[in-house]
Write a protein that binds this DNA or RNA. Structure first.
Lengths: 357, 357
DNA sequence: CCCGGCGCTGACAACGTTGTCCAGCAGTTA
DNA sequence: TAACTGCTGGACAACGTTGTCAGCGCCGGG
């Protein structure tokens, strides 16, 4: 058998399992050239209706599906963006992720995402894996504080936007919520309702937002001329055990706090549990939490929170990312979205009469 | 300058923006052959320590990062799997997604995910886009009822596992929760506490789990010899407006229901709101919800639920997927995970005295 | 009748990587 | 000294697609 048609795939006698028809196969079956198939698949003009029909028939008959890996290799753009966040299971990140996905979808891009679990090494590993995949852009909720490893990638044109926390040691776009201002408002709110001994329960102090929220706490206390005792401030991992212990310690101290400010939604939920478990005669403790959460209004009392719109955070970041991808130049920008205090009852509880003075 | 080395990229005089160094560039800089760079990058044996060092230096100096698109094209495997679900922002899917991601990570694979928004066309579009990317496998929470479009893909070796709902008109692996049994338990629980007129508030009846839960409701009522009035059953979209209207109608009817069974977490939350807003003298209405949700224990009364472990669902599905990818054969399997009734108070409320008879 | 132009089609190279295969070289043995 | 072995390194093709460019047939005008 003479190999007259060099186009036929006769070089590989045994097709390995999982092999799929290619444009070459479609072309052979339809009796047209390779490029014509490509034109049909991509909806390019310049193909006779009759030819197009023949090609379409061959495509469906063979179950052909374009191999985007090859396309990407050829075109250089992947039409996909990467999202690296802390934990997809955290209700704060679900809406954010979904918002990023919607924007990506509007731009015809797919979303690849991964959870860093708040581990800088894992963040870097993920980000670099995404870069190896040649994502067009990255949305990163950073876990680490040094992102210089991204310099070659950004220089090569990978658009990058940081969310929730700024980039470390590198100049990049960032979209943040006003953690400092929101926290100051929260604590000022408690002070306005008569509290003087206010506890702060925060996340690991290395996390930017956690540090900012602590700063806001101190600012509000300072502005009111109130002292801050070391025992009133606790930062660390947000696992229920630690938060529970810290909250209990503050509540059972000789001079107990009369109000608590919880630094994020995980902490707030645990604090709500701790307060709910207190023996009945205990004086009610005021509480304001950073981050809104579902059902906060249905608890009794309703939980007063500083709300930040995580979906809006994601949408803003993704919009900025695609503007960069569309060629928008200029220096890196830092956008700060406002927060909003939602009073629901728990933050408006007055301190017990004995400690008002 | 004579172009003695045919390897140098001198054919493209102007490198387009965003171009990156390739192995060829690294090889040229290190003064070695292309394949040697490949060997170093992939940690293959057969390279002198000295040569390896030279190559590594060139890699860091140029900021080289392997182009996985090319690698994928060559190797045929992408080391990535796709996850198509309904809505990433739904708290039910966050843990599921995270669980799938963890399993993927353990197998060195990346996760690409997309939300179908419960739209079959969008599901298909997403799934086929993922197939074009040549994901190794798919985890799908189906929105549609006809997945024959997947036949060519599955024949070509794309491992596919359906989750939460079975595949439509095609034979495929599936991991489900016991919606029927769980619902029957829920309704039987209410009956055991004296209720006779029990309302069912469910999702769109076209959704498999919704239909199963309705079936469980009917089964429990039948087994207790209780009649079911049309007015006690309402199915449809789970947006708060519809659920609110349906629940209100059941509660304000001439012969009002004394207990409600809510078909999923979205519905339950809305029902909790409706019940909370009822004027004070109204008799308390019992409630059991399908799906557990955060803080269900802190409401008063606590909300009795049928819990299904969405993370376990995802983990099980992903495990099965990778077993298939590792070559596990055999007929498609359908795994059903048990549900668990968690009594917290709302399901144990007795009916008002007047209607017990 | 011839020629220019246009519309459609296909051959070919290139994208960056990996697998195959062979060449070169140093060390060992007859 | 020649042959042989084992190991390192490099040339080349192939993965499936798209961009470039050239060719072919046909039509209308000169």
């Amino acid at each position: 058998m003479t190999d007259t048609a060099p186009g036929t795939a006769s070089r590989t006698p045994t097709r390995r399992y999982g092999t799929r028809p290619t444009m070459k196969d479609v072309a052979a079956r339809a009796g047209v050239g390779l490029k014509t198939v490509s034109r049909v698949v991509n909806g390019e003009p310049g193909v006779t209706p009759d030819t197009e029909r023949r090609v379409q028939e061959a495509i469906t008959a063979l179950g052909f599906r374009r191999n985007d890996s090859a396309r990407i290799l050829r075109k250089g753009r992947t039409a996909s963006i990467g999202l690296v966040l802390e934990d997809l299971a955290d209700p704060f990140y679900g809406p954010l992720s979904r918002a990023v996905e919607e924007v990506a979808r509007a731009h015809g891009a797919l979303l690849i995402n991964g959870s860093s679990a708040e581990d800088p090494d894992r963040e870097q590993e993920l980000v670099l894996a995404l870069c190896a995949r040649r994502v067009d852009g990255l949305v990163i909720i950073p876990a680490g504080h040094d992102h210089r490893y991204l310099a070659p990638e950004m220089a090569a044109g990978v658009a990058t936007v940081f969310v929730d926390r700024p980039a470390g040691r590198i100049d990049a776009d960032a979209v943040l919520a006003d953690s400092f201002g929101g926290s100051r408002d929260a604590v000022a709110h408690l002070i306005a309702h008569g509290h003087r001994r206010i506890g702060f329960l925060g996340d690991l102090p290395g996390i930017h937002t956690a540090a900012e929220r602590l700063r806001g706490y101190h600012a509000a206390m300072n502005e009111a001329g109130l002292p801050v005792h070391d025992a009133w401030v606790s930062t660390g991992p947000t696992d229920p055990e630690r938060v529970r212990a810290a909250a209990t310690a503050m509540l059972n101290a000789a001079e107990p706090v009369t109000a608590l400010f919880a630094g994020n939604n995980r902490v707030t939920v645990t604090v709500v549990r701790v307060l709910a478990e207190r023996p009945a005669p205990a004086a009610p403790v005021a509480l304001v939490g950073f981050d809104d959460f579902e059902l906060a209004d249905l608890l009794s009392p309703g939980i007063t929170v500083i709300a930040q719109d995580s979906a809006q955070l994601g949408r803003t970041a993704a919009d900025l990312l695609f503007r960069r991808l569309d060629g928008a130049g200029g220096d890196p920008r830092q956008l700060v979205l406002p927060t909003r205090l939602i009073p629901r009852g728990s933050g408006e509880l007055p301190p017990p009469a004995t400690s008002t003075a």
